[in-house]
């Protein structure tokens, strides 16, 4: 494991999160460095989404510490707005009321704002330019003035990614991000993540079910099934032995046959 002198972008220490009465995530510790792509793998119900939601402060945690960019996440999820703005999150299921009249441009722009008290027209030019270039990066400039109600599943994903990209971040958290994208869009999506990681030094934390993609694109893998079963490079973490611990031996035999 790389352990530089640099401060990690995200450090999770002995995190335990309860869902109702059972511990969905128990005693999990890991850290992320800038410019790396870390995948969380594990079977359904392993607590992957719970883990990232606790990191973001969406779900409360029972015990443990979460430090993001050197600042500890408050127990009720409080974090300085300046730090918050450095984090982007793409949820697994983005459900919204399709009757809301909002254009793609307006949605992407929300990613740019600091969301405190601000004049609606503050930094208008810079904001507009940021929206334009974010939409260009995800190849969605043609959707700019469309209402979000008319977007397809794949288009919605791309627009949400633009919402994440519109401001320079340091930590990007993706929950099953490429789900719903076709093959071409999916490979473009991974290319884009690679650029962000290499050129801009973003730390990426993503939940994934696609182990082949994880093998190809991730620098590190966390195997989660309530507790952290293993972590390391894909070769180590996704070895048959480790996979059978995480998913059960049936799964590994199935994977080897295909």
């Amino acid at each position: 494991m790389r352990c530089g002198l640099k401060e990690p972008v995200l450090a999770v220490e002995r995190l335990t999160v309860y869902r109702g009465t059972y511990a969905a995530v128990q005693d999990v510790s890991f850290s992320l460095e800038a410019g790396t792509d870390t995948a969380i793998v594990g079977p359904n119900g392993a607590g992957k989404s719970t883990l990232v939601q606790a990191i973001l402060g969406i779900l409360p945690r029972q015990t443990g510490n979460i430090v993001i960019l050197g600042q500890a996440l408050g127990h009720k999820g409080a974090l300085m707005p300046l730090i918050r703005q450095q984090i982007a999150y793409l949820p697994q299921n983005f459900l919204f009321d399709r009757r809301i009249p909002m254009t793609v441009e307006e949605l992407v722009g929300l990613g740019w704002d600091r969301l405190g008290f601000q004049m609606p027209w503050v930094d208008r030019q810079a904001r507009r330019a940021a929206i334009q270039s974010a939409l260009m990066r995800v190849d969605a400039t043609h959707l700019k003035r469309q209402l979000i109600s008319g977007l397809s599943g794949g288009e919605t994903k791309r627009v949400l990614l633009a919402y994440c990209l519109v401001y320079p971040r340091r930590l990007l958290i993706l929950d099953e991000a490429p789900a719903g994208l076709d093959m071409r869009s999916e490979s473009e999506f991974y290319d884009l993540l690679y650029q962000l990681k290499q050129e801009q030094g973003w730390a990426i934390l993503q939940i994934s079910h696609d182990l082949d993609m994880v093998r190809r694109h991730s620098d590190r893998v966390l195997c989660l099934n309530q507790t952290l079963l293993c972590q390391g490079t894909p070769e180590i973490a996704l070895s048959p032995e480790n996979l059978s611990t995480a998913y059960g031996s049936e799964f590994v035999r199935y994977r080897h046959r295909h």
């Binding site: 402060g57 969406i58 984090i87 999150y89 949820p91 983005f94 459900l95 009321d97 929300l110």
Partner: peptide, 10 residues
């Protein structure tokens, strides 16, 4: 639009 997205943004 989406409350979890807003919470994630603080």
């Amino acid at each position: 639009l989406n409350e979890p997205l807003a919470i994630a943004r603080g």
